[in-house]
Write a protein that binds this DNA or RNA. Structure first.
Length: 713
DNA sequence: TTAGGGTTAG
């Protein structure tokens, strides 16, 4: 039988592929169709999958709600099956009768809470509940204290007490006591209140036990029950259980209201199932639902997680077209999302719009915006905002303090950071912690001030602030650059002793320190550290620096090392390995490594070609890797000239000015290598870190390198 | 927490 709830949307959205193309397609589709009252065709295939409806939705009349909803839970929520992929691969143009109302997927009415009348005993009961809260946690003491309960213990009185008990253990004990006394039937609300308490204690198993008990005793589970179960599963990082209960809800014929619905949207969003979220969202919208700001916050966060700028704009556009005014949380979420999508300009606009609308930013807003300005290196905007924060007395907390410190590190604002750090020391609620110290170590590392970095390191152990893995990395990097290898080893050993677990970034840092060692005794010491952190990496280094190792072996092992490393450290790993080889005069191996790095996609955008201009962009390369890339490029150009193939008018090599104002070494080293190779590039005066050559320059350079060729022309 | 959903740090 045809799936009753199926519409064009079922076929279009039933896929479980989360690739970007489909997601953006879905959204595009959503954008175009949201306001239309009927579904339109969405496929071109001529064949009709039997399992799906064509122009009608047959078989829905008289079907139970549970049956009607089955396809939704099966098609939308469960894992993909061959049948579904079949459906997906053969979409069919279909029309849905516009006069037929959309089948609902959520109840537009939020579940009403029962109102209770004023309880004249409220003061006595509150006092009694307080006494229970104050008594010892042991079951015996609690039950003894219960003997003094004000009489009579009516349903309402019991509920009031249950609601006032905390922590969860006491509420749970009281609930079980009520059950054993059998004074009155324990209806849904008693379970809901108890579950709420259990949720605070993250006791998902107990909540699930209670839910099963309700089912067994035929006590109705309502929207509040389900949303409590789902949000607890989410809190306990058990998305599968959240989905399970959501599906069960449909199967039993209970329609979720918007609270339950947005809660499950959030579950899917956190699982990264963008398409499912959009599917559910669209379906609900199509039945006339006007989502509230919480839903938009969920969507905004989801798009932020994938840095999906179009998605964020879609959320804004939806809110605008539905006349939903963003609240503080929505603004915060969208600002955060804009940051993740790398759109500082739009974030700034949104922030100003928020202020304009009369909303006062809180700590989270300011943390998001300061972070964005810092990462974008917008010093002017960051400092202006900081000033505004002070002038307006906007709220600060220690996360915001630490974010300001990180911003200072990003912008190289050393004095400002030091002032702020001192201010934190004097403050009552925002004393420096590991994060603050890490930011300072980062700053001292960036300006290469080993003394200040080590001073802070000692100060930390005196004041009992633990060094974390990132602080350790910053400090070791700083010591390495200062060639203080014994201190590198000392800091590393202390860190391990104190229980720091080395991560890939720390390994990358140690690897870069290895590349700085000039004496073999230093190299040995640092390699011994690396041996503890990542023995495989040490094995690989030995293999690579051994001339006898074949390229095929290097390639195989390279693959293993890189696939085991976090994505963000793969390129730095490769850069350092190239540096190590070059330092040992193993140029050929360095070229092989650069080739492998390129092969495995670690250097996207290294070469950029247009008809008029070829560009070598070495901005993300280390000195050795950049030199290797330049040699490689000159070799390629030589071959092209010799073969008399087409060349563009202009050649460009970019080193950039260094991502950080303290790291400008690459341009200098590159320039000297250009000179050494007598390559025809000259540094542009108007643009630092940019080297240019014309076609004529390159051709004559090649000819000068090949005297015999020059003689014949 | 006063029966249920959303937002801050390398």
């Amino acid at each position: 039988m045809a799936a009753p709830l199926s519409t064009a949307l079922d076929i279009y959205f039933s896929g479980h592929h989360s690739d970007v193309k489909r997601t953006s397609l879905s959204r595009k589709w959503l954008r175009q169709n949201m306001s239309k009252k009927f579904a339109i065709c969405c496929g071109t295939s001529k064949s009709t999958p039997k399992a799906h409806p064509t122009s009608e939705e047959p078989g829905t009349k008289g079907a139970s709600l549970s049956e009607q909803l089955k396809p939704l839970s099966n098609i939308t929520l469960s894992s993909p099956t061959t049948e579904q992929s079949h459906v997906l691969s053969k979409p069919k143009s279909i029309w849905v009768n516009p006069t037929k109302p959309k089948r609902t997927v959520l109840s537009l009415q939020r579940q009403k809470r029962t109102s209770h009348s004023y309880n004249p005993q409220i003061r006595d009961l509150k006092r009694f509940a307080q006494k229970l809260n104050d008594c010892d946690d042991s079951e015996g003491d609690f039950l003894a204290a219960l003997e003094e309960i004000p009489q009579p213990l009516t349903r309402d009185n019991a509920l009031l007490v249950l609601n006032s008990l905390r922590p969860w253990q006491k509420a749970y004990l009281f609930f079980n006591w009520l059950k054993s006394r059998n004074l009155f039937p324990l209806e849904t609300i008693f379970y809901n209140v108890t579950m709420k308490s259990l949720r605070f204690g993250r006791q998902f198993q107990l909540i699930e036990d209670l839910a099963n008990e309700m089912i067994e005793n035929k006590i109705e589970l309502d929207n509040i029950t389900y949303s409590t179960i789902i949000s607890c599963a989410k809190k306990c990082n058990l998305p599968d259980r959240a989905v399970h209960w959501f599906e069960r809800m449909y199967k039993t014929g209970l329609m979720p209201d918007e609270v339950t619905y947005s809660s499950i949207l959030d579950v899917y969003a956190r699982l990264g199932k963008v398409e499912e979220v959009l599917n559910l969202y669209e379906r609900a919208r199509a039945t006339g639902w006007k989502p509230d700001p919480i839903t938009f916050s969920v969507l905004g966060k989801m798009f932020g997680e994938t840095g999906d700028y179009d998605g964020i704009r879609y959320v804004l556009q939806e809110m605008k077209s539905l006349g939903v005014q963003p609240n503080l949380v929505v603004y915060n979420t969208l600002l955060e999302a804009m940051g993740k999508a790398g759109k500082p300009g739009f974030a700034r606009g949104l922030f100003e719009e928020m202020i304009e609308s009369g909303i006062t930013p809180n700590e989270k807003t300011l943390t998001a915006v300061i972070k964005i300005y810092g990462k974008a290196r917008w010093a002017k905007d960051a400092l202006e905002l900081w000033e505004r924060m002070k002038n307006n007395g906007w709220p600060m907390d220690f996360i915001l303090y630490n974010t300001l410190l990180n911003m200072c590190a990003d912008l190289g604002l050393v004095e400002e950071a030091e002032r702020l750090f001192e201010e934190m020391k004097k403050s009552e609620h925002s004393r420096p912690d590991s994060w603050s110290c890490t930011a300072m170590l980062n700053i001292y590392g960036s300006i290469g001030d080993v003394e200040l970095a080590m001073e802070l390191f000692e100060e930390m152990s005196e004041s009992g602030i633990a060094l974390n893995v990132m602080g350790c990395t910053c400090l070791i990097q700083c010591l390495g650059k200062a060639m203080q290898f014994d201190d590198v080893v000392r800091v590393f050993d202390i860190s391990i002793e104190k229980g720091i677990k080395p991560d890939d970034r720390l390994c990358g840092c140690l690897l870069s320190v290895v590349s700085l060692c000039e004496k073999s005794k230093d190299e040995k010491k640092v390699l011994a550290c690396l041996q503890q952190a990542n023995p495989n990496l040490v094995v690989f280094i030995k293999l690579v620096v051994d001339k006898k190792t074949s390229f095929e072996t290097v390639k195989e092992e390279f693959k293993g090392i890189m696939s085991n490393a976090a994505v963000e450290v793969r390129r730095p790993f490769c850069n350092c390995l190239i540096d190590i080889c070059r330092n040992k005069g193993l140029q050929e191996r360095a070229h092989e490594l650069l080739y492998l790095g390129t092969l495995f996609g670690l250097y996207p955008g290294l070469h950029n070609k247009t008809a008029d201009e070829w560009c070598l962009d070495v901005r993300s390369l280390s000195v050795g890797a950049a030199q290797t890339a330049l040699e490689e490029w000159m070799g390629t150009l030589t071959r092209i000239v010799q073969r008399e193939e087409q060349l563009p008018e202009l050649f460009l090599a970019q080193t950039g000015t260094g991502a950080h104002k303290f790291s400008q070494g690459l341009g200098i080293a590159f320039a000297s290598h250009v000179k050494k190779l007598a390559a025809p590039f000259r540094q542009r005066e108007d643009k630092v870190g940019c080297f240019v050559a014309t076609r004529g320059d390159v051709v004559s350079w090649v000819q000068s390198q090949l005297p015999s060729a020059a003689a014949t022309t």
